[in-house]
Design a protein around this nucleic acid. Structure first.
Lengths: 208, 208
DNA sequence: CACGCTCTGTGATCCCGGTCACGGAGTTTG
DNA sequence: CAAACTCCGTGACCGGGATCACAGAGCGTG
């Protein structure tokens, strides 16, 4: 059994016990698509281990990186869509092996009613994601490519919690819905201004 | 007293009575700023009459139109920020005289616990706004100016529920964080392709 | 080691959209 | 009605970023 208490320290014993009773652990491999565009959620999903990259998908198959889900996070949409049986056009891909905790949607009412910490958690989840979307909008509404790139890199270093990340210029271009050449050029600029250093398949932060 | 029941038909008698007991009606004039960037919410706000235009604000005072709040809507952020005493950088301006219903945040716990319809409402509010933000991201991430403009116009016609809207090209440009000249030119194109017709301070939809 | 693959660097070109400059049309105020 | 202001139309220009074309660099595999 997984230690829910460690990953969700704010939940008290009662709630943990209840969750353990009604939910179950699900495993995914790296590269699996946890959240499919247009899918109906039948359960809420809490992330226990691993990392999930969440994209918005455009009409012609373009992708735009939104945010990462990490252990202790819930897929905000799974909670809400779950409560209403709605669908949504986002895509979530495991970028490492993932353990998740699935809670069938029919228990949401009772959890909400009986456990204040649960609805705090749900609301907080939503607030955070909302905030994050607003920041994404900032970037693409008000900033030019070089600033978007910097913001993107900061988030990567930050959430991956490392000074170097393994990624190709093409992948960055995809995440930002731009093109490789542009990203390469801008990375060069960041390198010559001593903010990062570049090598094949890798970018390491010097100072941002 | 306002007829809450008419505006929130999904709420049952008990909930309505409770809301009437703990909340109060607040009036705003056209042009008033209901939601200020950086403000702390002390209450949740439900909209009873009028319309509120919600913007994201950039670092240098730019604005970007996000969505309208209409009667029956709640300011999603006021609900959540309220529960956590957080702030957020969005701006809401009354575009007509507004009646709102304010509920002090200390009652949220009880409402959530005691009234299933209330938390359905809160979650649904959030889901809708989330969805709307995602659509905004679509527009600015994947589409060019003419498509953004079309999307923008559609939303205006749609939410204002009218074939003609009163607005200047400059205002549209501001809402889309673009410039008047560009908007004028694109509107001209839409006019010559018989999708809209233009006159001073007014745009009327022909077919979109 | 040679070949092939993926990833990166760089110039040339093009186009959308932002900016500048200006004139005219419509509306309001004295 | 004349002046002043707001709103709109349009040409000229410029720059960021998308696209194309190609070369070289790094790395794996037979």
């Amino acid at each position: 059994m997984v230690d829910l208490k460690k990953i969700f320290p704010k939940f008290d014993e009662d709630l943990i016990k209840q969750l353990e009773k009604i939910g179950q652990v699900v495993d995914f491999n790296e590269g699996d698509m946890l959240i499919r565009p247009g899918q109906y959620f039948k359960q809420s999903v809490l992330l226990l281990e691993g990392r999930v990259k969440v994209y918005r998908e455009g009409d012609n198959g373009e992708e735009f990186f939104l945010y990462y889900l990490e252990p202790g996070n819930a897929c905000a949409l799974s909670i809400i869509c779950a409560t209403r049986n709605e669908t949504s056009e986002i895509k979530g891909i495991a970028v490492s092996p993932v353990k998740a905790f699935a809670i069938p949607l029919q228990h949401m009412d009772a959890l909400m009613r009986d456990y204040r910490q649960w609805y705090y958690f749900v609301l907080e989840t939503y607030r955070m994601r909302f905030e994050e979307l607003l920041q994404v909008i900032d970037q693409i509404a008000f900033h030019s490519m070089d600033e978007k790139l910097e913001f993107y890199l900061k988030r990567q270093f930050d959430t991956l919690n490392s000074k170097t990340i393994s990624i190709t210029h093409q992948q960055i271009a995809d995440d930002l819905n731009s093109s490789r050449e542009v990203i390469s050029r801008l990375l060069k600029k960041l390198e010559s201004s001593k903010h990062i250093s570049i090598s094949r398949n890798e970018i390491t932060m010097l100072s941002l």
